[in-house]
């Protein structure tokens, strides 16, 4: 490799921190800033900041993003289906989520086995942690579903998916990785950037659409 590795990165590596881990940790503030930007300036809500962030990392940890997306969609689909199945029982929140988690877990297991039998070994060899992360997505989904309804929950889930996919491509962008290896301190620039985003009081892009008639017709 002809890229120059920053001394601090070299230090971490000699202390035994794996290279992958260093890169992932350095990417974290960048992805978090992306999510903040998407919310405050673009107007894409998603499920808060934690969920899209962790899903991005789950995507990074699965073998290829397509399996990640497939599992994500499966989880959301089951979440929607189970709402109708469980509705007549009128259960309290935690038991309801527990039942949902059970079903999601079993179905994912079935999925993995199906992948194996179709010679899609990539699916079956996805490590357990990203799968667990995806399963816990159900709780977030159900919470929103109860408070704001199915439609809103679905929209937020898709927004989360979009942000996570963008996050995935940013975090696996080789030029950015090379840049971070050379100038790891650059991640500190996300702080002033976030201060600027945090003080931003202009309209979000989505609000330009929402208020387009008012903007056009105001005197």
């Amino acid at each position: 490799m002809e890229i120059s590795i920053s001394p601090i990165i070299r230090f971490f590596m000699t202390e035994g921190v794996p290279f992958e881990t260093i890169i992932l940790i350095l990417m974290l503030p960048i992805i978090a800033t992306l999510i903040a930007f998407m919310r405050q300036v673009v107007g894409i809500k998603a499920f808060g900041i934690y969920t899209p962030l962790i899903i991005t990392f789950a995507f990074l940890a699965t073998n290829g993003i397509k399996y990640g997306i497939a599992i994500f969609l499966a989880v959301i689909f089951i979440g929607m289906l189970m709402r109708f199945v469980l509705k007549p029982f009128r259960l309290l929140y935690l038991p309801r989520v527990a039942i949902m988690l059970t079903f999601v877990a079993l179905i994912i297991l079935f999925f993995l086995a199906l992948g194996g039998s179709l010679q899609r070994t990539g699916l079956a060899s996805v490590s357990i942690f990203p799968i667990l992360i995806m399963i816990t997505l159900v709780e977030k989904f159900v919470a929103v579903q109860i408070e704001k309804g199915n439609k809103t929950a679905l929209i937020l889930a898709l927004e989360t998916l979009v942000i996570s996919i963008i996050g995935f491509y940013i975090a696996s962008w080789s030029s950015l990785i090379k840049f971070l290896v050379t100038y790891p301190w650059a991640v500190l620039f996300t702080i002033p950037l976030n201060i600027a985003i945090g003080k931003w009081t202009g309209l979000r892009l989505s609000e330009y659409i929402r208020f387009r008639q008012v903007i056009k017709r105001i005197q």
């Binding site: 107007g43 009081t201 202009g202 309209l203 609000e207 330009y208 208020f211 008012v214 903007i215 105001i218």
Partner: peptide, 8 residues
């Protein structure tokens, strides 16, 4: 657009 109140 500056006359309109947004979420932020």
């Amino acid at each position: 657009s500056r006359k309109i109140l947004g979420m932020n």
